[in-house]
Nucleic acid binder design. Structure first.
Length: 812
DNA sequence: AGCACGCCGACT
DNA sequence: GTCGGCGTGCTC
């Protein structure tokens, strides 16, 4: 007898697998999806191990296979186990990352009348109601429908009793799949039974006019025609088609159509640039490793540090090509926000027909098809956001993470709370792949690892523009405190205003950047200071100019702007804070003749809005572009000569030890965008903290000095990379219960620390989370710093309501 | 989550 | 005595 360890899709399964016996007739392999009995249910599971000895005394049998072939490779299963263990996530959640889109299917319970339901015992009124309902519907009824009609609890009881009395029976049926291959049917003429005219005449004689019409339609089209097209133009039913197919006059073929999200992208001609000396040197080093890794000799992690415009992407493309030449496939992770048509076209031009691209705009069907095309080996290169790491590439030889410092690589909102960069390094270790982490401003922890020799640092210092090698633009810091003292209360300092005027006079373009994080518009009473907040989430409501209403950016609660202050009854309620809309309004009044466009997430949710805006800028239909993060990342606007940062330091005072690092990264990124074209660029950064080391270093494009300062601060306070961090959050509807449970957990952790004799472990908090209440639930968190935290925490029991975030990127 | 088992109060 | 409330524990 053989046994299988199965990851079961049940919320109560947790990190463990369940042991099942394999019936002798099943050819069950590792990585296969199976149906298994679990409690009273039948659930989906994935085989993660085969054994000869069961791990528990009695086992149930696997019911059947879901997939004929394994869906996950052994390396993927090992990776899933690692993620599950390291990040304290349920095993099936981690396995599920790697399964095809739409894999999860549920069984629905149906009710029908029992075969011998004639001799019924006495029924209650409610039981009789349900019986009548079943009889009226004649067919089988979904249990969900009954529950909706009778109420969940009541329905369960009635049904249980009726089933026990053998009046009705219950059975399970697989719900319709959410997605599958797209099949289209085509009709084709078969002229074995004489000419078209003969057939048409014969059909008319029989009185089959609709059939004749279909034949004539097909004859006019010359070739196979979509079944749906015929049905809609000739207005005939399936029976007409069936009659024609049965008589042999036409044939019906079902063809699988691949949904291709890139079908509309026109592939440009690829013209790889000649590498500069510096690029050549870096490329040689990476290339040598790729050649050696092909013989499994070594597989290092490169940290490619290169300023914006230094040619990192070209190195990626060359590395992918090199991997391809050794028969190896590549995965390239890109922040979602940088997945612009520009990026996509560049990859497609270099590797036509070989690139799969994932992005948030794909439909479930498109994802499904992309997954299977990668699975079947049709694509050799996968480009996408963090989840692309789990696509079913076989023979992976190279993993690239562009902008590796981006926090979007950490999945914080749902389990598994994994960091794609760290998972990529683990995956590379399991598959002997080379990793390239690319960034202009590497994550402090990555750079520390490079310094310690764990990663190999390679650098591109020169910026290459159409003018040749060019220096980074000069950055001018404007002290907003001085402006206030001089009586200027506008969003625009006098130097920024002057600079914009000059640029407009020269008929050049300006970008204005707003860091919106933590600085959204809100309403405040000028008399008592009251700020309208969301009663469920306790965060300030954001004012939306366009709809003139207040909106909670956590639960989406909407309310009107109060006319009088609910706190003191006063009428002097004012709008505070800066948003793109406010900057836009002020810019319009200051620069009357300028053509101004606002670009933020509200605008870009529309499909293809990206391209339209880019085109407008390229065609010089815009003088001033106002935007948020979106314009800071990866977008190449060569003719822009001035960049103004309206508020560099809004993120500086957030309660998060990484706030300085983020401010530095963002400011550097924006500054790097200027002057990439033929004209030199200028950058103006407005701030209330002109002396802050993050702002100072960013203005000089000086990563080294920022790093020295930041790493020293981390060392002193024992923050990562000098310790590991975990954030434990407890959520409950009652704030006091929440606080008490958090206190109890802290005690628990400290006593466990004492028991294990650990000295380097410490706790911070508990404290209410930055957003103290979300959707009516209070949140308290404890931060734990130490080493090997994931191992330590696995000894602690976390009751329901706790979430564990290992290596959190944000405390907010 | 859902379904067993089991231990007490209201009723026949 | 018995039906049925929901507290506790388990699911290979």
């Amino acid at each position: 007898m053989k046994y299988a360890e199965v990851a079961v899709n049940s919320p109560i399964a947790g990190p463990r697998s369940f042991c099942y016996s394999i019936p002798f007739h099943l050819n069950c392999r590792i990585g296969q999806a199976v149906w298994v009995p679990f409690g009273s249910k039948t659930l989906q599971g994935l085989v993660i191990e085969l054994t000869n000895q069961p791990s528990v005394e009695d086992t149930k049998e696997i019911i059947g296979l879901i997939s004929p072939e394994p869906l996950l490779s052994p390396a993927q299963i090992e990776l899933a186990l690692w993620i599950c263990h390291y990040y304290h996530a349920p095993l099936f959640d981690t396995v599920s990352l790697m399964l095809p889109p739409g894999f999860e299917r549920k069984l629905e319970t149906f009710l029908c009348l029992a075969a011998d339901s004639a001799d019924m015992p006495d029924l209650t009124v409610e039981q009789q109601n349900l019986m009548d309902y079943l009889k009226n519907d004649r067919g089988d009824v979904n249990l969900k429908e009954i529950e909706r009609k009778f109420g969940k609890r009541k329905a369960q009881k009635i049904v249980r009793d009726l089933v026990q009395n053998k009046v009705i029976t219950k059975y399970e049926r697989l719900a319709k799949p959410k997605v599958g291959p797209k099949i289209q049917s085509f009709l084709k003429l078969e002229l074995n039974n004489g000419s078209i005219t003969d057939i048409v005449v014969r059909l008319r004689d029989k009185g089959a006019y609709k059939q004749a019409e279909v034949i004539e339609f097909l004859a006019a089209k010359h070739g196979p025609v979509l079944l749906a097209e015929i049905k809609s133009t000739v207005h005939c039913s399936q029976s007409v088609i069936k009659a024609l197919v049965d008589s042999g006059s036409v044939s019906l073929d079902a063809i699988e159509i691949k949904r291709d999200p890139l079908a509309h992208v026109k592939v440009m001609k690829d013209s790889p640039p000649v590498l500069t000396q510096e690029q050549e040197r870096v490329w040689e080093e990476i290339r040598n490793c790729l050649i050696r890794s092909a013989d499994n000799k070594e597989h290092p992690v490169f940290l490619l540090k290169g300023v914006t415009g230094s040619g990192k992407t070209e190195i990626y493309l060359k590395a992918i090509a090199e991997a391809l030449s050794h028969g190896k496939q590549s995965v390239c992770l890109v922040p979602e926000i940088a997945l612009t048509p520009q990026t996509i076209e560049r990859f497609m031009a270099r590797f036509p027909g070989q690139v799969a691209i994932f992005h948030s705009g794909l439909s479930l069907g498109e994802r499904f098809d992309e997954w299977y095309r990668i699975y079947q080996g049709e694509f050799k290169v996968v480009v996408g956001p963090r989840s692309a790491l789990f696509s079913p590439v076989s023979g992976i030889g190279l993993i690239i993470i562009d902008e590796e410092h981006e926090w979007t690589y950490k999945q914080s909102d749902k389990s598994p709370r994994y960091h794609a960069r760290d998972v990529a390094v683990k995956l590379a270790e399991l598959t002997n792949a080379v990793v390239i982490l690319g960034s202009a401003t590497p994550d402090i922890e990555s750079y520390y690892k490079a310094e310690k020799g764990q990663y190999r640092l390679v650098e591109l210092r020169e910026r290459v523009t159409p003018r040749g090698v060019s220096p980074l633009p000069e950055v001018e810091i404007v002290n907003l405190c001085d402006e206030l003292r001089a009586g200027n209360r506008s969003l625009f300092s006098s130097s920024l205003k002057k600079a914009i005027d000059e640029v407009l006079a020269r008929d050049e373009q300006t970008i204005l950047f707003i860091n919106r994080r933590g600085s959204a518009n809100f309403v405040q009473c000028r008399d008592c200071g009251f700020v309208p907040t969301c009663s469920r989430c306790l965060v300030a409501l954001t004012y939306h100019l366009a709809e003139n209403r207040l909106r909670c950016h956590h639960c989406n609660f909407v309310r009107e702007v109060p006319r009088t202050c609910p706190g003191c009854g006063g009428t002097r309620l004012r709008f505070i804070g800066i948003g793109t809309q406010k900057v836009e309004m002020e810019a319009r009044s200051l620069f009357k003749k300028a053509r101004i466009l606002r670009w933020d997430s509200d605008v870009t949710t529309r499909r293809r809005a990206h391209e339209q805006i880019l085109a407008k800028i390229k065609n010089r239909e815009i003088d001033i572009l106002i935007g948020t993060q979106i314009i800071a990342k990866g977008l190449d606007l060569p003719q822009v000569t001035l960049i103004g940062v309206i508020n560099a330091d809004t993120g500086l005072n957030l309660p998060d030890f990484r706030s300085a690092e983020r401010t530095f990264q963002l400011t550097c990124q924006i500054a790097g965008r200027a002057g990439r074209g033929l004209m030199a660029g200028r950058v103006i950064v407005q701030t209330y903290n002109p002396e802050h080391y993050a702002i100072q270093a960013a203005s000089r494009h000086d990563y080294e000095s920022f790093y020295r300062r930041e790493i020293e601060y981390r060392r002193q306070l024992g923050y990562p990379p000098f310790s590991q961090m975990a954030r434990l959050t407890y959520s409950h509807t009652n704030n006091i219960v929440c606080h008490e449970e958090a206190d109890r957990m802290r005690e628990m952790i400290l006593s466990e620390k004492a028991k294990q004799g650990l000295s380097d472990l410490r706790t911070i908090g508990p404290a209410p989370a930055f957003i103290p209440r979300v959707r009516g639930r209070y949140q308290w968190h404890i931060v734990v710093c130490g080493s090997k935290l994931h191992t330590f925490l696995s000894d602690i029991v976390f009751p329901k309501g706790w979430t564990i975030d290992i290596d959190p990127v944000s405390m907010l």
